[in-house]
Each structure stands twice: as structure tokens, then as C-alpha cells.
């Protein structure tokens, strides 16, 4: 299998001493993590461990209590709104719920970010871009359907297609396989790998699914109770003697 090109000299996402609290409750504690260009990092952790909060902080949807996050060389909390929006165009965010716009059909869902952000695009240009993104995820036949007509797996793929339309450099996946059957999960995993290779994206994949982490991540980090306990290859993390990590793995196997 063709391996993705990972440039370990260039950091795409850098997280330093990051903490986040909500009303006195510490969700993330002193997080440090680097994602290299072209690399997929799978972030494993139980529900409520702060994984989704972490990627929302990276996309500047939330503000950190302490620490700094640098994406493509820009500190997301120190740039103004115009610069932040320019940066966000390079970030693709795949939501756990897919977050497709209910009132729009699939074509409109995909065309919406493009029309809003790229000036002077002809209708034909938009149509071609939408068709290309839908072909990429294998759902071109759903172009006229409404999100409510799709299955969970199809919605996830459309959600990814919507991010691909802006040709992102960074991908953030929030629980891409949650609630899906093993076959559909594997399709999503393959799609994540295809996106990494074709678009040369750097990604953080938030998941509690060990198979997803093993298949999609070039590196794996384990986040438990707001702290990254270990980061490395999947096997290195899997072989860890840390009791909390072991108990997380055992829990997953039992599940």
C-alpha cells in the first residue's frame, strides 16, 4: 500500500501547554502535541475525556484557558477575525453529527461554503466542484437528496465531502466512525486515508474506536481525564504498561 508523505521537519498543528476549564472544571490539562505535515494523528479517549473540546479549540470555536495552539504557523487565538477566517478555509472539520444543513439538499450543502467564500465563481464551476467532491466520497447519486434521506454513514461521507470542496490542508475528524456498523466504519477509515494521500492533509482523528485509530493514524495519542498519557505508534501505545491506558483498551475489547 502506498504510504503517505510525512514531512517531520514541518509542523502543521502545534499545541503547547494547553488547558481548558468550564466553570472551574478542568477538561484539558497541560496538553502538548505536534502534528507534522501530511501526518494523521489518532487521538483515542473515552467519552467525556475532552477530545472534542480539543479539536474545537484547534478550530478556534472555543478559547483556551491557558496555552497556545498554532495551525500552519499561525496562533489561532492571536490572529484577527479576517485572518482566522482565511485560516479556517484551510481547515476541514468533520463533525460527529455530520452537521449537514437540514434545509438544504446535498448539492446546496456542498456549494454553500464555496459560494460564500469564493467570489466570481460561475454556476458551472460550483457544479463541477460539488460533483468532484461527491465523486471522491462515492455519493454522486445523492446530489439532489436531502440530508434526512441519507443513512448515518452517508451523512458522514457527505460531511467529509463538504470539507473537501475547499481543498483543506488540515482535517479534523470528530468521531468519524461512531454509531456506524463495522463495514461502514471501514469505508470511512479508507476515505480518511484516501483524503490524506490525495489532498496531502494533516489530520487529527478523534475516536474511541481502536480499529479506526490503528487504520487511519500514523501516530496515536491517548487522552484520558484531560491529559495525553502517551503518544507514539499504535503498537507503542498499545503495549504501554500504564494502567489507565490498559484499562481503556480492555474496556474497548469488552465492548
Amino acid at each position: 500500500m502506498e504510504q503517505p508523505e510525512i514531512n517531520k521537519k514541518e509542523v502543521a498543528i502545534s499545541i503547547k501547554n494547553l488547558s481548558k476549564s468550564f466553570g472551574g472544571l478542568n477538561i484539558l490539562k497541560d496538553i502538548n502535541l505536534e502534528v507534522y505535515k501530511g501526518e494523521n494523528v489518532a487521538l483515542l479517549g473515552k467519552s467525556g475525556s475532552g477530545k472534542s473540546v480539543l479539536i474545537k479549540l484547534i478550530a478556534a470555536l472555543l478559547k483556551p484557558t491557558n496555552g497556545e495552539i498554532t495551525v500552519l504557523g499561525q496562533n489561532v487565538n492571536q490572529i484577527n477575525n479576517v485572518e482566522l477566517n482565511k485560516l479556517r478555509l484551510k481547515i476541514g472539520f468533520s463533525f460527529q453529527s455530520s452537521a449537514l444543513y437540514d434545509s438544504m439538499n446535498i448539492y446546496e450543502n456542498l456549494a454553500f461554503p464555496l459560494k460564500m467564500n469564493v467570489k466570481n465563481l460561475s454556476t458551472n464551476d460550483v457544479k463541477l466542484a460539488v460533483e468532484e467532491a461527491l465523486t471522491e466520497v462515492g455519493l454522486i447519486d445523492k446530489i439532489k437528496q436531502m440530508p434526512s434521506d441519507l443513512s448515518g454513514g452517508q451523512r458522514k461521507r457527505i460531511g467529509i465531502a463538504r470539507t473537501l470542496i475547499m481543498k483543506p490542508e488540515i482535517m479534523l475528524y470528530d468521531e468519524p466512525t461512531s454509531g456506524l456498523d463495522p463495514i461502514t466504519s471501514q469505508e470511512i477509515n479508507n476515505l480518511i486515508i484516501d483524503v490524506q494521500k490525495k489532498y496531502k492533509t494533516s489530520a487529527i482523528i478523534i475516536t474511541h474506536d481502536l480499529t479506526c485509530a490503528r487504520n487511519t493514524g500514523n501516530r496515536t495519542a491517548v487522552l484520558i481525564e484531560g491529559k495525553i498519557l502517551k503518544a507514539g505508534t499504535f503498537d507503542e501505545v498499545f503495549d504501554s504498561e500504564n494502567e489507565q491506558i490498559k484499562s481503556f483498551y480492555n474496556y474497548n475489547f469488552i465492548q
Binding site: 474545537k56 478550530a59 470555536l61 477566517n85 482565511k86 479556517r88 478555509l89 481547515i91 472539520f93 463533525f95 460527529q96 453529527s97 452537521a99 449537514l100 444543513y101 437540514d102 434545509s103 454553500f112 461554503p113 460564500m116 467564500n117 463538504r162 475547499m166
Partner: peptide, 25 residues
């Protein structure tokens, strides 16, 4: 109800990460 359901299903955040100002839109 429309904006509320967009809020709870993360559609407003999806707009924000697409560099669209949801408040304005």
C-alpha cells in the same frame, strides 16, 4: 426553533468553521 435546532446539531459551528459568520447569515 430553526436557529435552535441548528445550534444543537452543530450546524452553526459548521458555518463558523467554513469561515461564514453565522450571526450575520
Amino acid at each position: 426553533a430553526e436557529i435552535g435546532s441548528m445550534k444543537v446539531t452543530e450546524q452553526i459551528e459548521a458555518m463558523e468553521v467554513s469561515a461564514i459568520n453565522p450571526f450575520k447569515y
